[in-house]
């Protein structure tokens, strides 16, 4: 069957078997290897991608079901080659990963959360990533990463206190 997908902002199409999962099509047909197979029965979350902005298990979705949808994979988050999104950079800052296998799914789950709120509580974050199993980190530094990313995103375009006070910056002598 022919399937038309919009992946990371680019229209792609492929001829696929109806039984082929979105995960396998992303990896094999479009060579987007950042999406990983973990359990292939919808529990571990390593295969998470965003479908119209919502995290979805690509191992539980046939590619033909994704026809016409906007798919975002981990490759779609970095603004340019060699550059990182705020969330990706936050994961590096707190070392919110070890082996890196669950990381793309984890970051996409975090991305979806922070699209909805920039003031998540620890519980919100734990809930948002609870469908993604990480065997390395025990989640502590992942939660820190999401908190850190939320902080940065929240203040990104906020004037600094010094500017608000309209005080001239005195040059140090």
């Amino acid at each position: 069957m022919k399937v038309d997908l919009r992946i990371n902002g680019i229209n792609r199409s492929a001829e696929v078997e109806p039984r082929k999962t979105l995960l396998d099509v992303l990896r094999e047909n479009f060579l987007l290897n950042g999406t990983h197979a973990g359990c292939e029965h919808g529990v571990c979350g390593a295969c998470t991608v965003l479908v119209d902005g919502e995290p979805v298990r690509s191992c539980l979705m046939f590619a033909v079901q994704a026809d016409g949808y906007e798919i975002t994979t981990i490759e779609g988050l970095a603004p340019a080659p060699g550059e990182l999104s705020v969330i990706q950079d936050a994961f590096c800052e707190t070392h919110g990963l070890q082996c890196g296998y669950c990381t793309p799914g984890m970051i996409l789950a975090a991305h979806a959360l922070l699209q909805n709120t920039l003031t998540p509580t620890r519980e919100d974050i734990a809930e948002a990533i609870s469908g993604n199993i990480c065997r390395c980190t025990g989640y502590g530094q992942i939660i820190e990463a999401v908190q850190f990313a939320a902080d940065r995103l929240r203040v990104a375009n906020t004037p600094r206190p010094a500017a608000l006070a309209e005080k001239p910056i005195v040059e140090a002598k």
Partner: peptide, 19 residues
């Protein structure tokens, strides 16, 4: 200091055997 390996993994650029 940051962990240098992290950069490639957060971008989905790890090189696993399936890749």
């Amino acid at each position: 200091r940051r962990v240098r390996e992290d950069r490639r993994f957060v971008a989905g650029q790890g090189h696993f055997v399936a890749d």
